[in-house]
Simulated scan of single mutants.
Amino acid sequence: MAGKGVTIREVAAHAGVSLGTASRVLSGNPATSPEARTRVSDAVVALGYRPNLQARSLRLTRTNAIGLLVSDVRNPFFADVAHAAEQAALGADYVTLLGNANENVDQQDRYIETFLNQRVDGVVLAPQGRGSGSLQALVDSGLPVVFVDRTVDGFDVPSVTTDSRSGMTEAVAHLAARGHHRIGFIGGPQAISTGRQRYDAFVETLPAHGLVVDDALITFGDFQEESGIRAAEQLLAAPTRPTALIAADNLMALGALAAIRSRGLRIGSDIEVVAFDDIEWLAHYDPPISVIAQDTDAVGRCAVELLMRVINGEEPESIVLTTRFIDRHG
């Protein structure tokens, strides 16, 4: 294997080092060991790697700007994360260029290309799907990258995520203790890591409370409000509708609440609802909605702190924050 088609990821794999180490060696960053420099240099020769000069210039020129790409700017969770990230970046003397992927891979890719062209010093992003061509190009460029909220299999990138299981376990235990045997679930897209993790956490928790996994009580949306309406209508139209419902994000929960009320059902007495993400309007809903809460301030702040460490030549470990259940029923 040789030629300009060889990527920096292949060089890193051949040398037996991380992608970040390979990138720093190739950019001349002194924060590398002699052994790492030798292994990467040998891999470059063996594979015939030709560096992307444009990408190299990105690493050598500081702009004191970072790119921040959220999944949906209309989602209060991502708005709060973006605000926390922006404030943390300002505290580190960086300005933030904000992009909205709109839960769409093509829109994500347009922003990634723009960030590369604008020569930002690094990127924090919530990746879409299972990894697009532009996402691979971004990582291969050697530009410092941190994933936030979501991860993508096969990408060696530090991330800030949350543990869905802790809060989900508490939520299911709460509903089971209140006598709910038919708990409906509106999951997110299974192509997205958070969608898969929240679904897995739900189905793996049920047996501990003597509950079976019933496919008739499970449906999926796309983390947006309209899909929450459709999913809830499907569940509520079933011959034996659920007596409780967990929605895997706040926008789908909002849609589910609208569908429930359109049928004349009473929240809390006819059906109990739990939403993933503690957003302000859920606490002020009538009646207030119980939630599985994430610390959005910590998510955004930690993502920028990780990115600053990558920019400075470090290889930080990923961070997993906890979730917790907040009971607002009683």
Rank of each mutant, 00 (worst) to 15 (best):
G195K: 10
T169L: 09
P158I: 03
S166K: 15
V123D: 04
T194C: 07
D163F: 01
L143A: 03
A126E: 07
A176M: 07
V203P: 01
Y111Q: 11
E204C: 00
Q128R: 14
A171Y: 11
A176R: 00
Y111M: 12
T114Y: 13
S141G: 08
L138H: 01
D121Q: 03
H181N: 05
G188L: 03
V213W: 01
P207R: 04
S159D: 06
R150H: 05
P158M: 02
A137R: 15
R178M: 10
A173N: 10
T161G: 07
S164L: 06
I186A: 04
A137D: 14
Y111G: 00
H174C: 10
A177D: 14
T169K: 14
T151P: 02
R119K: 15
V148S: 11
A201D: 02
V212N: 09
I192A: 13
Y199N: 08
V157D: 06
V152M: 10
L143K: 08
M168I: 04
A216H: 14
T151W: 01
T205N: 01
Y111N: 02
M168K: 13
Q136Y: 14
V120S: 07
L206W: 08
V123M: 06
V146W: 06
D153F: 03
F202Q: 06
S134Y: 12
R198Y: 02
V123N: 05
P127L: 05
D121S: 05
H181T: 15
V123P: 03
R196V: 12
L175R: 14
L211A: 08
I112Y: 11
Q190N: 02
A201L: 01
G122N: 12
D109C: 03
S134F: 10
F147Y: 15
R110F: 01
G142F: 02
V148Q: 11
F155R: 13
F115P: 03
L135N: 06
L175A: 10
V139M: 03
A201C: 05
E170I: 00
A176L: 06
T114V: 09
D156H: 12
L138A: 05
